[in-house]
Structures are given as structure tokens and as C-alpha cells.
């Protein structure tokens, strides 16, 4: 990593998404809304920061894993933190989030970008992205059946492994 890149990575790495005085912090909320443990949520936040750093360096578009995307979505909700503190003051550039427009062409494009993202991650950080947060491209684009569920009105029962390979 170049000196300037190192400086930028340190700024992103130490950027704090959590307000320690808030009863419900960013990471608390991330964990609650996704049904994740606090430990896993902190790991995904760390991977989100890496992804943001890669976006600053990459000469081509990148696609996050679904887990990293969830962190990004939530950060976008904290508009002051995202646009002012992170984009304006920390990385000094605006990073917009572009969801897919749908269709098979887009699907192929995102698949290609996701593979490139993981390869770029490996190049920059000199380690493979963790599988539990950056799954294979096949899994990433297969497991996309998400819906917001009101848990006070519905029970969630996990499918047996046979139906959920």
C-alpha cells in the first residue's frame, strides 16, 4: 500500500460509526435488525470499512456482499454521519449507492463486479476476504430472498438443512 493509501485506510479504520452516549448505537441496531450477534456485527462493520476503502482505490465498479451492503444501507440512514462526517470529512469524496435495475444483464454485471471486488480485496489487504461475510459469488446471488418481518406477529422457523443446502 502506498503511503497516501495507508493514511486513508487509517482514517477509515478509525472512523467511529457508534455514538457511545446513545442507548442504541449503530452496531446495536445493525445486530438487532439483522438478527446477528454483536461479535458478527462488529466484524461486518470492519468489512464495510474495508469495502469503502476499496471503493476509493478501485479503477472499476465494486459490489459488496449482502452483509456489507446491509451495513452500507444502515449507514446511509444516518445521513449526517454518512454524508458529512464520513464522505465529506473523512474520505473527502461522495460515494453513492447504486442498487440494481434488475434483469439478466445487470445480474451478470453485478456477479462480475462481485468477483472482481473479492480479487481486489485480496490484492490490497493481502488476505482472502472472510467467507462468513464474503461468501462465494454463487451463494451471494442465490440467497436473495429477504423480506422485512414483524416478529411480534410472526414466528420464524428455520428450514431443515435438507431444504436449505
Amino acid at each position: 500500500m502506498k503511503e497516501a493509501d495507508n493514511l486513508l485506510w487509517n482514517k477509515i479504520k478509525t472512523f467511529e460509526l457508534d455514538d457511545p452516549t446513545a442507548p442504541l448505537t449503530f452496531t446495536d441496531r445493525l445486530a438487532r435488525e439483522n438478527g446477528w450477534s454483536m461479535e458478527y456485527s462488529l466484524k461486518t462493520v470492519c468489512e464495510y470499512k474495508k469495502f469503502m476503502f476499496l471503493l476509493c482505490l478501485a479503477p472499476h465498479p465494486l459490489t459488496p456482499s449482502d452483509q456489507v451492503d446491509q451495513v452500507w444501507h444502515l449507514h446511509l440512514l444516518y445521513t449526517y454521519s454518512y454524508w458529512t462526517l464520513f464522505c465529506q470529512h473523512t474520505i473527502k469524496r461522495a460515494i453513492h449507492h447504486g442498487p440494481t435495475k434488475g434483469g439478466s444483464l445487470e445480474k451478470e454485471q453485478y456477479l462480475d463486479w462481485y468477483i472482481k471486488t473479492k480479487a481486489f480485496y485480496q490484492d490490497i489487504f493481502e488476505q482472502a476476504p472472510p467467507e462468513d461475510i464474503w461468501p462465494s459469488a454463487e451463494k451471494r446471488f442465490k440467497e436473495r430472498h429477504f423480506q422485512r418481518v414483524n416478529l411480534s406477529q410472526y414466528w420464524l422457523v428455520k428450514k431443515p438443512q435438507f431444504f436449505n443446502p
Binding site: D18, T25, D28, S37, M38, E39, L42, K43, C46
Partner: peptide, 24 residues
């Protein structure tokens, strides 16, 4: 201690580590 070995140099907010410990 589990949250630390695999994440070298990680800094965890005190309150988050407490929550992790409760969950673990």
C-alpha cells in the same frame, strides 16, 4: 477474549465487548 485473536489490532468499544461477553 474470543473476539480478539482473529482480528489483529481490533479496538472494541467497552460497551460492545460487554454485550459480546453476555452473548458468549
Amino acid at each position: 477474549l474470543y473476539p480478539f485473536p482473529t482480528n489483529n489490532g481490533i479496538e472494541i468499544l467497552f460497551r460492545h465487548l460487554v454485550k459480546i461477553a453476555y452473548q458468549n
